[in-house]
Design a protein around this nucleic acid. Structure first.
Lengths: 201, 201
DNA sequence: TCGTAACTAGACAGATCTGTACAGTCAGTG
DNA sequence: CACTGACTGTACAGATCTGTCTAGTTACGA
């Protein structure tokens, strides 16, 4: 580990401006919304000069794109961690649900508020590429479920595809409802529904 | 019908400022988001003086509340219209799905963008009462489904409740995905899934 | 015909927004 | 020691935001 890495990890000295900005943006964008959060709020919370933002990102829109990418990667990390402990395709499907539940259990400033990507997409204008990022994220989640189901139903690819769509709707709907209610119990219900569907195959 | 009503209906002269403002707010809030839409944009699109807005609403937040209430009422009207043509509790459940599909088929400036209430909630700060309005709307939808299922499963109230939650998740998730993709086909899939679940009872 | 209520056009205050400019600090490296 | 690159603090431009104020118009009903 180099000196620079040690600092980046926060052991000796403070983390570089880019990391602090992304962390602050993640908190404020999620809690207060993208449009309602100003540049000054983010730099103040990051403890960083405004010029450090524009040295690392070309505009606020660029920071928003980095925020969306980071949320997608963050979810993938939760999923992969759950997948390591999974045994067989049934556990694989449930790992997707568990990854969202893990997300909901994270410590948030103002409680769970649903999927950060979907919330951001709701604010983005019609043609914004950020909406495509979010759409692709949701399609990847459905594809991951479908991949597990293909192993579970090798003789019935059509059923596997339909069931994957069904399960991805369940997950998405439960996340939205959990966000409105501020806690993750709806996600536990959805996981139980998914498990019951898998057992009835 | 009085003279005033005739004018309000748009036959002889222009509609009153409040109606024009609510219609303009509905278009802009849905297409561009609540925070990103300014007062001046709304009054310009309504073809109304700015003071007419503040004569009818105490603030922008007040207009947002009226917008949320109007979206809820609008959906209820679609649902009741579908319910009139329904025969029996099975049709009643599907009427809820059809009401959302009707919503998706409405002519929107920039295509379907999901549930306007959920999108608005994503922008509202943590404690805002608007989030409670949206939460209660979703709970009412689930309750309507549950009411039909109680008639379908009079001996199994627990199953009826669980299935209602399941169906409401399906509907919510399909709406979110349809909003990201800009058309209503995901909602048709969800309706078919719901019908299959009802047939398997 | 007169009063009233709804509405209009535009200026305005004061705050806040994104993005830029600039001069200076500080740590590590050749 | 001199140089480099990241970072700071503050001031600023220019646009845009919500909300207020005022003076004038228009239409209808008693």
């Amino acid at each position: 580990m180099t000196e620079t890495d040690a600092r980046a990890a926060g052991s000796g000295r403070r983390r570089p401006a880019r990391e602090r900005l992304l962390a602050a943006a993640a908190r404020r964008f999620y809690a207060d919304g993208v449009t309602a959060t100003g540049i000054d709020t983010i730099t103040a919370e990051a403890g960083v000069a405004k010029m450090s933002l524009y040295n690392n990102f070309s505009s606020k829109a660029d920071l928003v794109r980095a925020y969306l990418d980071a949320r997608h990667e963050e979810w993938l990390a939760l999923y992969r961690s759950r997948l390591e402990r999974a045994e067989g395709p049934r556990d694989g499907v449930l790992a997707v649900f568990d990854a969202y539940a893990d997300h909901a259990e994270s410590a948030y400033e103002h409680g769970f508020r649903g999927c950060g990507l979907l919330n951001a997409a709701a604010e983005l204008p019609a043609g914004d590429e950020g909406r495509t990022v979010v759409r692709r994220h949701k399609e990847e989640v459905e594809r991951l479920i479908a991949g597990h189901l293909e192993h579970l139903l090798p003789e019935r690819p059509n059923d596997a595809r339909t069931l994957a769509e069904h399960l991805s709707f369940l997950l998405e709907g439960a996340t939205a409802r959990a966000g409105l209610e501020g806690d993750g119990s709806r996600l536990q219900h959805a996981r139980a529904m998914a498990a019951a569907l898998l057992d009835s195959l």
